[in-house]
Design a protein around this nucleic acid. Structure first.
Lengths: 229, 229
DNA sequence: CGACCATTTGATATGGATCAAGCGATGTGG
DNA sequence: CCACATCGCTTGATCCATATCAAATGGTCG
């Protein structure tokens, strides 16, 4: 069944005033159309950003906080598609409607851009077209990695997840998990009990340390790398 | 471990003579740059089309036959990423090298196009750019569907697979599976025994019929739809 | 302090994997 | 053209990783 927090679907109208776009050539080599055109919005913890089956009219870029996308299956289980942290782009779908829902995991600030504005811009600016394509390609990469993870053992999934999070939210061996055990379980296709047990076991073998349930210290990268399959 | 048929990696040089591309506007509304520019190649059953980690210099479109992409994991298990049938495009990667290997499941004919030629063309022709993007988007869609399938039960995975294949290779309720049970198992993240047992069970409940091991008749779509989750 | 969550830990159940034959179709050499 | 080897598939018996059910613990906030 659905874990917790079933937030009622609200639609919203971000106050997007697309600035007239920089002409091609004026755009920086690493020009980020979303950052330039995006309107900031904030979402409180567990607030819905968009819902499954809503029209995919906007594109989002995380400034601060963490966002999860998810889908509730027919039998009521929730599968989390991805977590997005600062710098990540989400909400770009192939079709006209969102396939996943999106919620803020923590209080979050995101930039919002009208999709049609970017697509229109891409017609004239090859760099923007390439950027949009590369966002989709990165998403594909992530989906493939995720699905390869799902055929591994519980321990490999958890270790892989911790290594990935370490790289994305800190770059060091020590970091704070922004999400609950339930979120992790729903992301990895495991139960909360299995996630908890696996982490306890990793701690008992000195591979990691858990000063608190959300705080993780990677103690032994060599071991973790081996456990990652 | 790897199922059967470890084909030795051969590199190949498709004889691609990119015809000078149609000018934008001359391109048909549904213009298919791959079909226009592609050089036909044939591959025998189980022949390698490209290998993991090889440079992703070409893009492929299936004309006849079936192709599988796969990855061999550290522990030796093989995970099939996707099956491609007539009309499907494969081989377009985000990076410079292939993340999966590709093999012909049956004797196959494919069109081959140099990636760089298409990317160059996309710089000038927005329609081609959009086409490339949409190929990646479709692949993302497929990867997401696949990964949602992996958290379902064995029966749901098998039923989902049969419904998908029916839609893709025939459109009717009766079709020939181009791939072995081992291929199906490696695609669905199950063992060959579980796939076989599940099919037998579906037959015993009159949901499907199996005139031969490769031939499938969908007997009861209502039941199958329900079993699909 | 007390209520409420999130997390951990323990006991048991189970779906699918693994181990092990058997069977049917296909193809090959004698 | 038959005998036998091979390969792909099915079926049976048992095992095990993870789910499920249940309870205790710990952390947070009014």
């Amino acid at each position: 069944m659905i874990s917790q927090s079933a937030i009622q679907s609200r639609s919203f109208k971000p106050d997007v005033h697309a600035k007239s776009p920089a002409a091609p050539g004026v755009t920086a080599p690493e020009g980020d159309a979303i950052a330039m055109m995006g309107a900031p919005m904030t979402f409180k913890r567990n607030a819905e950003i968009y819902g499954e089956n809503e029209p995919a009219d906007y594109l989002y870029k995380v400034v601060t906080g963490t966002v999860r996308t998810y889908k509730v299956l027919a039998d009521g289980r929730r599968q989390i598609g991805a977590f997005y942290v600062a710098g990540d782009v989400f909400g770009l779908e192939s079709g006209e409607t969102h396939v996943f829902s999106a919620e803020a995991v923590t209080d979050s600030k995101v930039l919002v851009v009208k999709r049609s504005a970017l697509v229109a811009l891409a017609e004239r600016d090859t760099a923007v077209a390439r950027q949009l394509w590369s966002i989709t390609a990165r998403e594909l990469q992530r989906a493939q990695d995720h699905f390869l993870a799902l055929i591994k053992t519980a321990e490999e999934r958890v270790v892989g997840f911790l290594l990935d999070m370490a790289a994305r939210v800190s770059g060091s061996n020590q970091f704070e998990l922004p999400m609950s055990r339930q979120d992790i379980a729903d992301f990895l296709g495991l139960t909360i009990e299995t996630v908890s047990r696996t982490m306890s076991q990793l701690e008992s073998t000195a591979a990691i340390e858990l000063p608190s349930s959300r705080r993780v210290v990677l103690r032994n990268r060599a071991t973790l790398g081996r456990l990652n399959g």
